[in-house]
């Protein structure tokens, strides 16, 4: 046997034995012990946990802090929030303060977050605080906060505020609560950022808006920005019954004078929504106004001809019919 062979054999045995050793003695289990939670302890865990590669663990820590908010000393939680300047940590603490209100406690802790969202000097902190108010009752407790946030100097804050208005509308209120829909329309109107205005109007339910909000949508139809006109046209398709007839007349009239294809597409959708089967003659009459949109008109006519009586199902079937062709 050569020395090289012997060395290789020895090395191989060594490796095998260390592998065997590793399988035989796994690391000892962690000494998991239940403890009382504290603000500082949770903050430390979160800071370290942010480095973890496990999204499950990071999510757990965020939820744990939020769940703990109702039993942790409020003063400590407030103080930690006010002291903190790192946006990601601000967001965790803000979410906890908001969660305390959401469990049925006073709106004061949520309002503290609203104040920071609108006044902190750091736009990243304002954006983080705004995100912490998402999918909560914030719109019921913060006055005109959203009309201010959509005018924030930072585009990030403005867009986060728009996302809150959209997601609150859908996930908290199922699109059925008039006051928050009106607040979303008011914020869309108040913003000077046309992307924000368009995004809000494109994505909220207007099923329960007031006469005044509907009026504002009509006004926006006359604006310079095509994205905003398209979003306002789409929003008018979902207005309450007393507003439907006027919306329909306005949109038909607007279609012929409008040159933007995006606005015209939105108008066609709203006419379909406002009239269901009775919109078919109206849509057919508009078919030759813009040859680019003849296939879109045809798609609406086919979808409405299914006779389905729910808007969400008509939308679904239209897409299916278009894709299947």
């Amino acid at each position: 046997m050569t020395r090289t062979f012997l060395l290789a054999r020895a090395l191989c045995l060594l490796t095998l034995s260390s592998l065997a050793h590793a399988t035989e003695t796994p690391p000892p289990p962690p000494a998991l012990q239940p403890e009382t939670c504290s603000v500082e302890g949770l903050m430390d865990s979160i800071r370290r946990g942010l480095q973890s590669k496990s999204p499950a663990y990071r999510r757990y820590l965020r939820e744990l802090l939020k769940e703990s908010a109702v039993t942790l000393p409020e003063e400590q939680l407030r103080a930690a929030f006010e002291r903190e300047t790192e946006p990601v940590m601000v967001e965790h603490l803000a979410a906890a303060l908001v969660a305390k209100t959401e469990r049925g406690e006073s709106p004061a802790t949520l309002q503290l977050v609203g104040k920071r969202a609108s006044t902190d000097a750091d736009p990243a902190v304002r954006a983080a605080s705004t995100r912490a108010l998402r999918r909560t009752s914030a719109e019921e407790h913060t006055g005109d906060l959203y009309s201010r946030l959509v005018r924030d100097a930072s585009p990030e804050v403005r867009m986060e505020a728009a996302t809150n208005l959209i997601e609150d509308n859908q996930f908290v209120y199922a699109g059925l609560h008039g006051p928050v829909s009106d607040m979303a329309v008011a914020a869309a109107v108040a913003s000077s950022d046309s992307k924000v205005t368009a995004r809000i109007l494109d994505n909220i339910s207007t099923a329960a808006i007031s006469k005044e909000s509907a009026e504002q949508l009509h006004t926006l139809l006359g604006g310079d920005d095509a994205q905003v006109r398209a979003a306002a046209a789409k929003a008018l398709g979902g207005v309450p019954a007393p507003e439907m007839s006027r919306a329909r007349q306005t949109l038909v009239a607007l279609y012929r004078g409008e040159s933007d294809v995006g606005v015209r597409t939105a108008i066609l959708q709203s006419l379909a929504r406002l009239g269901f089967a009775s919109a078919v003659p109206e849509l057919t009459a508009l078919r030759n106004v813009d040859p680019r949109l003849a296939p879109e008109v045809d798609a609406w006519v086919r979808a409405l001809s299914t006779g389905l009586q729910e808007w969400s199902l008509i939308l679904r079937e239209k897409q299916r019919l278009q894709q299947a062709r």
Partner: peptide, 12 residues
């Protein structure tokens, strides 16, 4: 045609 139907509108 059915196989081409992907990423449909998500219902509310």
């Amino acid at each position: 045609r059915l196989a081409a139907l992907t990423a449909l509108v998500a219902l509310p």
